[in-house]
Amino acid sequence: MSLLKIQNLSKSFEDKKAISHITFTLEKGEILAILGESGSGKTTLLHLIGALHEPDSGTLLLEDKRISPPSEKLIAGHPDIKLVRQDYGLFPNISLRENIAYELRYYEENYRNKRVDKLLKLSGLEKVQSHLPREVSGGEQQRAVIAKAIAEQPKLLLLDEPFSHLDAVNKRRLKIEILRLIKAEEVSCIFVTHDVSDAYGMADRLAVMRKGKILQLATPQQIYQAPINQYVAEITGEVNVIAQDLQQKIGLPNTTGTFLRPEQIAVAATSTIRAKVMGIKFLGNYYEVLLKTEGYELKMFSFEPLPINEEIGIAIRPKV
């Protein structure tokens, strides 16, 4: 049985369609990333799932039970669904431990203390548990927020841009720590992001949204290797969009399609496909090389710098 089922969900604000006929399911223990630009409707979708917005049409089921909309409740929301917003939402004048314990204030004291101890350990916050939110890093604040959200063991955790305030180092660390925390607690998770790198290595599946619609939903690897259109190809990574006449001129195999990832292009000295090196950028552990062939520009990745203006042979690798 799927944990969450969404069927034909739609929502408008002042005659502007925010969400349009969205349908998908989420399995127990699954992590789903929703990728899209600002204004694509991804945050509105989270709020609909969390019973914080009223849908215009469609059905939302959690374990085959209808998720009641705000109009049918005194307080909006769902007890088994927790939403973590972009602003951290911690009480500023109490410690991290007290923030987490607040969610369990109606529980027996012994259970509350044991549960908070477990969450602090899982989230790596034991050493800073007595600190105020302003006294810890952004990554530690975010971990505390998530520990607070799952304190009552919800069935579904919703994260709105969980990495948007963090630098690259803290983002990498937090991804690992959140993944460990979610898996340890066996909670399902949907998070939204505008940066596809947040999804890689963390999400089981990826949904690409644009203008209120899901364009493609599959594993991150499947979408990266076989994007359904140019928008999906470009938002999920660097890509060369190959014109039809160029495909014929350089003899691209049918398996490559019209989208060619830079890592599919390789230097091949004996190849009949010739290209001129027009520019090169150092990007840390690899170089981005701008090539020109048959009047078209292509990007490729290389672990070695290539001389500018030199003509080289290139070969096209099939998708892995």
Score class of each variant (00 low, 15 high):
E63A: 12
G29E: 02
G201W: 04
R180T: 13
R85V: 14
R317K: 05
T258D: 10
I182L: 08
L32W: 09
L96Q: 13
L52C: 06
I34P: 12
A269N: 11
S188I: 09
K213E: 12
K171I: 05
A144D: 04
F303W: 11
T256P: 14
P318C: 09
H131G: 08
A101H: 11
T272F: 13
I308N: 10
E30K: 03
P318Y: 06
C189Q: 04
S38H: 06
I49P: 07
A203L: 03
Q129F: 00
N170M: 12
F259W: 01
R261K: 12
I146F: 02
I314M: 07
K183L: 12
E177G: 01
P79S: 03
L260A: 03
L96E: 11
E294D: 04
A207V: 04
P92D: 15
L83Y: 00
T258C: 15
K65Q: 09
F301Q: 12
L260N: 01
V208N: 00
E54T: 05
E304T: 09
K11Q: 08
V289M: 01
R115I: 04
L9S: 14
N240Q: 07
Y102N: 07
L46K: 11
E288K: 10
F303Q: 15
N254G: 14
E72C: 00
I314C: 07
Y296F: 15
E37W: 11
K276F: 10
V208T: 07
L9F: 04
E54M: 08
I31E: 04
T25C: 15
G257V: 09
K299Q: 12
L9W: 00
A151R: 12
V320I: 14
E304A: 03
I214A: 07
L48P: 01
K249V: 08
R105L: 04
V192T: 06
A207M: 02
G257S: 06
V232P: 08
G212S: 11
V192P: 15
R210N: 03
P220M: 08
L32S: 01
P55I: 06
E294S: 11
V232I: 04
